[in-house]
Design a protein around this nucleic acid. Structure first.
Lengths: 349, 349
DNA sequence: CAATTTTTGAGGTACGCAACACAAAATCTG
DNA sequence: CAGATTTTGTGTTGCGTACCTCAAAAATTG
C-alpha cells in the first residue's frame, strides 16, 4: 500500500508565516533572523507558525538578497606527485561548481614542505579571503599563521594534512593513524601467519601524516602479528628513483621480506624494484592513494591493496565547510567525514 | 611564492555581458537560454563576451526567477532491516536539505519484494511527481511501470537495486557483482591457502542484488582460490532466526567450514551461531552493510570484514540526480558513483 | 523602393528574502 | 496621566535572473 508522508505541494513563504501568526513581515523577519526587539510572547507565536507551516527559508532567495559573495584561497603544493596533481584538478572542478553559488576559489601554489615559505604565504594572503583551505604542516610558524588568520575572522580548514594544535575550524582529511592500522591489518591478514620481516617506506618522517600512518601501522603489527617484525622505517622522500634503489636494496638484503607498506609516494620505484626482483607475487605490497600508476600495479597484481582518500570528496568538502562556516549554516559531520577507502583489484572505481 | 590564479572579485551579471557585447539584455537572455531569433553573428558576439567575462549564471537567482519547485517520490520497503531503516532516515535528512532548494520528497513505504505490489504502487503514484527514486525489482511488471513513468516524462532513478532493462535514467547503487568479487578476494586472501569449504548465505535468490553478489563471489573464488570450495547457496530470507538455524546446521555438518559470505541481511543470527559454536575466530565471516550490529560483531572480531554501501551517499545522490535531471543541469559521474566500501575494524567511521 | 520578415531593444513584472527607515501602537516609567 | 521607551506595522529597495509584451530597427524579399 502506498501510504506516504505527503508534504504540502508548495513551500510556505515568510508572508504565509506572517499571516498565520497575525503579525507583520518585518516582525517575522526579526524573529527568524534573530534580531532584537521582539517580545518573547510574539517570538513564540511566530515560531509556532513557522513550525505549523513547516516554513524553511528559501536558500536561493536568501543568498540572492544578502548579496554576499565568498572568496576562498586554496593553498596547495607546487609541482609534486600524482595525488597532488589530482587534488589540484578536483579543486579546480570544485571552483567551477562554487562559481554558480557566489563563491570564488583562488588556487595558490606554494612549497608546503617548507614551514617558513608556507607560513609566509599564509601571512601574505590577501585580506579579501573569507576562507582558506591549506595543506598544513604542524609547525609553530605555520600554526601561528593559521591562528592569526582565524583571529582576523578568516575561516581556515586544513586539508589532507592537519595542524591539530592550531585553531583551524575544521580538518578535511582522513584519520592517518587509523589508515596505518588498516594497512597493518590487511598486511597481517594477507600474510596469515607467515613469518618474516615487513618494511615501511615513508616519504619523510617530518610529515605528520606519514608519521601518523607508520605509527598506526607499527601499533597493530607489533600487538597483533607477532610473526612479523618491522624493519626500521625508510625515508624515500616521495621520489621514485630513490625508492627504487631503496626497495632493491631491501629485497637484496632481506630474503625473508614478506611485505612492504608505503605510507607516502614514490610507488613507481617500488613497483620497478619488486618486478625486477621476481618476488612481486610473494611480497605483499600495500600503499596509499589511487593514481593511474597504483591502479595499474594493483590490476597487475604487483600491488595488493591501496588505502585511499578521495581527493574529489576532500576538495568539495573543504569548499562546503568553508561556505557553511561563512554563511553561518550548520554542517553535517556525516557527510563531511572523509573515509579511509580500501581498494582491491575488484572494487576499483 | 604565492602565484595564484586570481579571479575577478565580483561575478559578472547578465547586464555586464550585455554591455560588453554591445547588445541589450533581452538579446543576451535569448542567447544564454537558447531561444530562437538571433543572428548567428550576434550569438557569437554574445558568447565571446560570456567567455571573456567568465559569466556564469547565478544559480540562486535563476532558480528563484524560474520559481519551479520539484516533487520527488522515494519508494522504500516497509518495515525491514537495519540497512533499510538507516536508508529511510538518510532519505528523510536529504528531504530536509532539499526543502531549502525548492524540492520536496515524499517517502512511500511499499512491499518492494512483491513485484505486483511494487508495480501497482508505481502506477498509482500521483502525477504531481517530477521524479521518482525506487528500490527496484528486475521484473517485467515493475519494468513496465518504470517505463510508463519515464514515458510520461517522470525522471526515474533506481536505488540500491537496479532494473537495468528498464528505461530509468540512472542507477544509484553499487556494482553488485564487483562487491561479490571483492568479498571473494578478501575471503581468499584472509584464508591464505588453507583448504576447506565456504558457505554463501543470501536473502533470496530472486533479489537481483543478492544474485549478482553471489555470482561475483563464486566467479573469483572458483577461478582464483582452488583451495576453497563453495557450498550450495543458502537462502536466509534476511531473517535472523532462520539464518541462526541455518548457520548452526552448517557449522555442525561441515567441520572444514572456513568461511561464510553473507550477501544479504540476518547477520545477528549468523553471529549468534558462530559465537555459540566457539569457531568464531577461525571461520572468516564477511558480510554486507555497516549497521550497529555488524559494527559490534566486527569490533568484537567475530566478523572479519564488511562490504558497505553508504546509504547517506545514496540518498543524497538520488536527490541530486533527480534535481539535476529535472532542471536540465549536468551531473558529475564522479561524484555520483557509489563506492564499494570495505570496512575492517580499523577504518570504521 | 515598398512591403514583409527577421532581429533587436526597451521596459516591465515576478520570484522570496534581507535590510532599512519611519510611523504607529503598545507598554512601561515617574 | 504625560512622557519615555519598547515593540510592532507599513513601506520601500535591491539582489540576478526568467519571461513577457510591444515597438523599433535591420535585413530580406518581391
Amino acid at each position: 500500500m502506498t501510504e506516504g508522508a505527503t508534504q504540502p505541494a508548495t513551500r510556505a513563504t515568510l508572508e504565509d508565516v506572517a499571516r498565520a501568526a497575525g503579525v507583520s513581515l518585518a516582525t517575522v523577519d526579526r524573529v527568524v533572523n534573530r534580531r532584537e526587539g521582539v517580545r518573547a510572547k510574539t517570538v513564540a507565536r511566530v515560531e509556532a507558525a513557522v513550525a505549523k507551516l513547516g516554513y524553511r527559508a528559501d536558500l536561493a532567495a536568501a543568498r540572492l538578497a544578502r548579496g554576499q559573495t565568498f572568496r576562498f584561497a586554496f593553498v596547495l603544493p607546487t609541482g609534486s606527485n600524482s595525488f597532488m596533481t589530482n587534488l589540484t584538478e578536483q579543486v579546480a572542478r570544485t571552483a567551477d561548481w562554487l562559481a554558480g553559488h557566489r563563491g570564488f576559489i583562488d588556487i595558490h601554489h606554494v612549497d608546503v614542505f617548507d614551514p617558513d615559505v608556507l607560513a609566509g604565504a599564509l601571512e601574505n594572503l590577501s585580506p579579501a579571503y573569507q576562507g582558506v583551505a591549506v595543506i598544513a604542516l604542524d609547525h609553530p610558524r605555520v600554526r601561528a599563521a593559521i591562528d592569526e588568520l582565524v583571529a582576523r575572522g578568516v575561516a581556515v580548514v586544513t586539508l589532507v594534512s592537519d595542524a591539530p594544535s592550531s585553531s583551524r575550524v575544521h580538518y578535511v582529511g582522513i584519520d592517518n593513524p587509523a589508515a596505518g592500522r588498516t594497512a597493518a591489518t590487511l598486511m597481517g591478514r594477507f600474510l596469515a601467519g607467515r613469518e618474516g620481516t615487513v618494511a615501511v617506506i615513508a616519504g619523510s618522517l617530518s610529515l605528520r601524516d606519514h608519521t601518523e600512518r607508520q605509527f598506526g601501522f607499527h601499533q597493530i603489527l607489533s600487538s597483533e602479528y607477532a610473526n612479523l617484525s618491522a624493519l626500521p622505517v625508510i625515508e624515500g622522500r616521495d621520489d621514485s628513483n630513490r625508492t627504487r634503489e631503496l626497495t632493491a636494496a631491501l629485497l637484496a638484503r632481506h630474503a625473508d621480506l614478506r611485505g612492504i607498506y608505503c605510507c607516502g609516494a614514490g610507488n613507481r620505484g617500488i613497483a620497478d624494484a619488486l618486478e625486477a626482483s621476481g618476488r612481486a607475487r610473494e611480497v605483499v605490497w600495500i600503499t596509499h592513494e589511487l593514481t593511474e600508476h597504483t591502479r595499474r600495479f594493483l590490476v597487475r597484481g604487483t600491488l595488493d591493496a591501496i588505502i585511499n582518500q578521495d581527493a574529489g570528496h576532500e576538495a568539495r568538502s573543504a569548499a562546503r565547510v568553508l561556505l557553511a562556516h561563512c554563511s553561518g549554516e550548520p554542517i553535517s559531520p556525516d557527510q563531511e567525514r572523509i573515509r579511509i577507502d580500501i581498494f582491491l583489484r575488484d572494487n576499483l572505481p
